[in-house]
Amino acid sequence: MATEIEARPKQKVEQREEATRPEAYFQPPLDIYETQDALVLVADMPGVGGDAVHVEVDGDQLTIEGRIRPADYDGMKPVHVEYGVGSFRRRFTVSEAVDREGIKAQMRDGVLTLRLPKAAHARRRRIPIES
């Protein structure tokens, strides 16, 4: 029997002080798992279409960004609010060397799946997994 889900508050991205746009971004909740040959990242970004995702690798920094469609909210007057709405952004450090050319992204039903193949030298290394 599956458990009940709890609604957790969306986490806002702290705005950098130099940000010129007053737009709020949210941090997508994510799963990251590692297989023999890849790191797989799965992020919830509801409202983001397949053409509105941006993935950037800079050294060991990985940034994902997904933009929602503001037009979906045209003419809407909020009367009861439980969550804020906005685009998504999250940046983190990738501990393994990743083969940038081989990165594959798929966006489906508001879920981004990012497959980051390990670079050849990282793949050869044996990775001990604590039991």
Partner: peptide, 17 residues
């Protein structure tokens, strides 16, 4: 998840609602 996957992070939830 795939076989022998080791989770680094697990923030997404599943279940009934």
């Amino acid at each position: 998840p795939e076989n022998e996957a080791a989770y680094h992070r697990r923030e997404r939830q599943e279940g009934r609602f």
